[in-house]
Design a protein around this nucleic acid. Structure first.
Lengths: 162, 162
DNA sequence: TCTATTAAGGATATGAAATATCCCTATTCT
DNA sequence: AGAATAGGGATATTTCATATCCTTAATAGA
């Protein structure tokens, strides 16, 4: 069970978009080049963000993507779910129904206890992701990245932002 | 990102094994029939439990599986990891290395902040699974399942346990 | 108005992983 | 001796992630 690499891509792209000056857009092409990713496929991930309403887009030259909300109002969970989907990671196939001792026409009361426990763990994962804002990530990146690399990257992006 | 259905199978099978009297074994055939699962493929899941040391096995007629430890000393995480593997659900491909502004020969200090956050959520999921013992599941099942179905199921298993 | 550039999305190809079955071997019980 | 079992290798099938290509509509700038 491994998350799509598109999740990683989307998170990094959002981090870049978070640093864009008000009203500017950044294209798939620039984001793909900056991260060394296949442009066409990255485009699918960005479309997922767009469909989820996390980013705004505009067409034409100087078009591209920008965040739809301030970075403090975007959580990791928003981004992960936009790309990976909101479905739970544990699917209950209700195999207890196959119990040969089960009376004919018997109907289970609630969700299977196995599923209930697995879903609680799933929810703990989501809760953790919900607690991290995109702004937390940019703050962590600011500490992690040397000042000169941070600066040159920012300028690289600005040159390409429409 | 969805867990293998083998995880569900293994959890249900362990719940059955937890009810087995001391020293008795239950075969793949019986476990597959009880849950309505493909015997050959379920066998692979049980082999994973065996390789992880969670169950003991014995050969021959009246052979099969039993728990290697008391149900209170087996956690959900033990079982999930035995089948699904211990790898993290988020893989960091370190795409920050592709930053075109990155100086030649520059080496990242620690793990990528994005990965660090995703791994924390992953750990929260594991922590939750680690906190649930197999005995907790059997207790929940005892409350969930009507007494007569519980009893007839137990007898069904006993008849087939070697 | 014309041209270049963009996002959106459909179609399709490729690769890896989950799912499933089959068969052979060694072991153990009756 | 014979039957039933776990273990495990080989292989097929299906599903999904990954990836590319192409068309369309919108937009900016010349």
């Amino acid at each position: 069970m491994i998350l799509k690499s598109q999740v990683e891509w989307a998170l990094h792209c959002c981090a870049i978009l978070a640093g864009l000056p008000e009203g500017r857009y950044l294209s798939t092409k620039a984001l793909a080049e900056f991260h060394g990713l296949p442009k066409e496929y990255l485009s699918k991930a960005l479309q997922s963000l767009s469909q989820a309403g996390l980013v705004d887009t505009t067409l034409g030259p100087s078009g591209g993507y920008r965040l739809a909300r301030p970075p403090a109002e975007l959580t990791f969970l928003d981004i992960v779910e936009a790309v990976e989907g909101k479905a739970r990671t544990f699917v209950c196939n209700n195999i207890r129904e196959n119990n040969p001792c089960r009376p004919q026409g018997y109907c289970e009361s609630g969700p299977c206890p196995v599923a209930r426990i697995m879903w609680e763990a799933d929810e703990a994962w989501r809760e953790k992701l919900r607690a991290v804002r995109l702004s937390d990530l940019t703050e962590a990146l600011a500490l992690d990245i040397p000042a000169d690399l941070w600066k040159s990257s920012f300028e690289w992006v600005l040159e390409r932002a429409g």
